[in-house]
Design a protein around this nucleic acid. Structure first.
Lengths: 229, 229
DNA sequence: TCAAAAGTGTTCAAGCTACACCCATGA
DNA sequence: TCATGGGTGTAGCTTGAACACTTTTGA
């Protein structure tokens, strides 16, 4: 038995892929060499397959561009205005991913015409992809204020100043070093690795790693990383 | 030009409809008199039409059960596990609505086999509808902590004790009357109507209405209605 | 006049904000 | 030895939590 065919609709997945280069929050976009809107910028996307769950579809598409697995991904929102796609009525389920910008397969991304943009220098995107990115950024701001998702964008070992720069990039606002440090350390999520950041030309900052146990346990607890006024 | 037919998929909408009766947060469910899962409880739902935007589809479905228009609705999440629907692979976009429980068309709801349940007495639901309700409740808890959505569940004129009962129902926790009152009034969103609640058998509480201007302006500002520990 | 619900004020503790000094490093 | 960036401490203020008394009303 099947349902009547009245609402079989093209179903797509689009993926906002965010990274952080130490200074700026960045997004991975592709220059389309296929129709429609060939030559313009868009999110990485693709059609949902009939035999895969939504999350698997999103993972597949992320993997096609970055080569990555095991990445933090969240379903964001579904877009389905009747005329959003000029070819045919298509509903797109948008996901966002937070990746460590150094981890992905650069060659693969290049072969798919993928380029990183700072959020502030993002070009115009096709269809409603600009709206998707706006919503993704807003969602990251919400979530990062309460939950420790920022770490997903950093390498395994990171310094507090790096983390602070990330938060400053996410909220596009300067933060006080001393208060930030105290707040982050008070969560108990950070473990001093005993190592220091050798890349610095001044005082070397302490490298921390995540307390995995606490991280997983407390992930859904509230932390108030930002005061969201 | 059309896309290849590889991923045309049945697209449904399901709707979590919440109300508040003065004591309990409630949800409107239907007892299915149609297949599949005839006789079991589910959310109100339907298939997306090819010629309507997602929000319009959700509004249509809400209206079919309640007769209401102009209701607070939010897209929640999309569900698309391959085998979630036994009939055929179907992706469902879930919305939630907050309505004033007295405003809707009781006869219409009855004619569709709609019944209200307290959240705590909710029966088992078909498919992944239980998961949907859980996520909707969580989203309401998040949102109501920061944004003034609670008012959508109350009549136009309401008292502070009523509002407190609503928050207590949403978070399933008792709140301190004095602190709650001070906090809510400090937002400046409430306007003393000069009237009092005549339904009370003891001291009559002041009826407030929303400061519409401030409400709309501040809707996306953060308020910290709840301390989310 | 009593019970029940509503309105209001105060005190204390915790947390946030703002700010200053010292240390380590490489040039 | 100097400039730069990193680590830490403190004082004041704001906010939230805890708590008690008074008022209104109908029975």
């Amino acid at each position: 038995m099947l349902y009547p065919p009245e609402s079989r609709i093209m179903l797509a997945i689009d993926c906002c892929i965010f990274g952080f280069d130490g200074e700026n929050l960045k997004i991975l976009l592709i220059k389309r060499n296929f129709e429609p809107e060939k030559g313009k910028w868009s999110l990485m996307g693709g059609f949902m397959r009939t035999n895969e769950d939504l999350e698997n579809g999103a993972k597949r598409i992320l993997n096609e561009l970055t080569g990555l697995d095991n990445v933090y991904m969240e379903q964001l929102f579904s877009y389905g205005n009747v005329d959003r796609d000029p070819v045919e009525r298509t509903v797109s389920i948008c996901f966002f991913a937070l990746i460590n910008i150094n981890d992905h397969d650069h060659e693969l991304a290049k072969s798919k015409n993928g380029y990183w943009f700072s959020m502030k220098e993002m070009p115009e995107l096709i269809f409603d992809h600009g709206e998707m990115v706006g919503k993704a950024l807003q969602q990251i701001q919400y979530k990062a204020a309460l939950h420790p998702i920022g770490f997903e964008l950093l390498p395994e070992k990171f310094t507090i100043p790096q983390l602070q720069k990330l938060y400053e990039a996410i909220y596009d606002t300067p933060l006080d070093r001393r208060n930030f440090s105290r707040k982050i350390l008070s969560t108990g999520l950070l473990k001093d690795t005993g190592e220091k950041n050798e890349n610095s030309s001044t005082k070397k900052a302490i490298l921390y790693s995540l307390e995995k146990d606490k991280y997983e346990k407390q992930f859904n607890a509230f932390h108030y990383f930002m005061s969201m006024k």
